[in-house]
Write a protein that binds this DNA or RNA. Structure first.
Lengths: 114, 114
DNA sequence: ACTATAGTTCATAAAAACGGAACAAACGAA
DNA sequence: TTCGTTTGTTCCGTTTTTATGAACTATAGT
């Protein structure tokens, strides 16, 4: 099978990160992957609190996050175990990801509910 | 003529900001608008250091920045004077914009030149 | 009114995203 | 091995978004 490939840290771009995180579904995914102690799978997100996402679409969202360098996906049996790469990214991008997630959290707090 | 309209701060979204700043041309525009003491116009950016951008395209880039809430455009005679809204955004979004611009600056420093 | 300049809008083409259907990979059970 | 099941990817047609030249609008100066 095709080995999943992840960009090296030096190939990760701010542009790619911002594009990846300019989609609310991908933000939800990343937040949950960061929050959870156990690795999360693609299928864990097909039924979001506010919408249902087709699995082909979800697969694409994971690909975008992976290619942006935000998550790492490892095959474990029939599923993919996804974990955050935020710690790896921190030396290069500092507070970027934290600031983005904090801003989203603040936005929700101001009026859109949670 | 059509009065340019700008979103109220409470209508600005993180999603919109990230989308606007996931394009390198728009980042260059915002950085220069923030750096400059004098207001900048659309036409100031048609010949960027690394590429030429058609004015219809540039007009769209300004529209995206304006609708994202990142800049304010005021007509002065025949031209538009654009100024940053970052200070207005700060109470709502904190370090978000600063972190994004810092990350871009750091990325350039690492290898792509300036 | 005429000309020049700054931006916008329109029309169309190119690119990207969405999502259903078919496919592929890994596993367990017979 | 061969089924059957589960997970995720790929293919492909549709929809949406973006890019850009051409035409147009707005403002100012002469």
């Amino acid at each position: 099978m095709k080995p999943l490939q992840h960009p090296a840290i030096e190939d990760v771009t701010v542009e790619g990160i911002l594009h990846a995180l300019s989609d609310p579904v991908r933000v939800q995914i990343l937040k949950e992957i960061m929050r959870s102690s156990a690795p999360k799978t693609c299928s864990d997100f097909l039924n979001l609190p506010d919408r249902v996402v087709p699995k082909s679409t979800m697969s694409q969202h994971f690909r975008v996050l992976r290619e942006a360098g935000l998550i790492r996906s490892e095959r474990k049996g029939v599923e993919l175990h996804n974990t955050p790469r935020c710690e790896e990214l921190k030396p290069r991008f500092g507070q970027l990801i934290g600031a983005i997630l904090a801003a989203y959290a603040g936005e929700y707090a101001k009026g859109k509910g949670d």
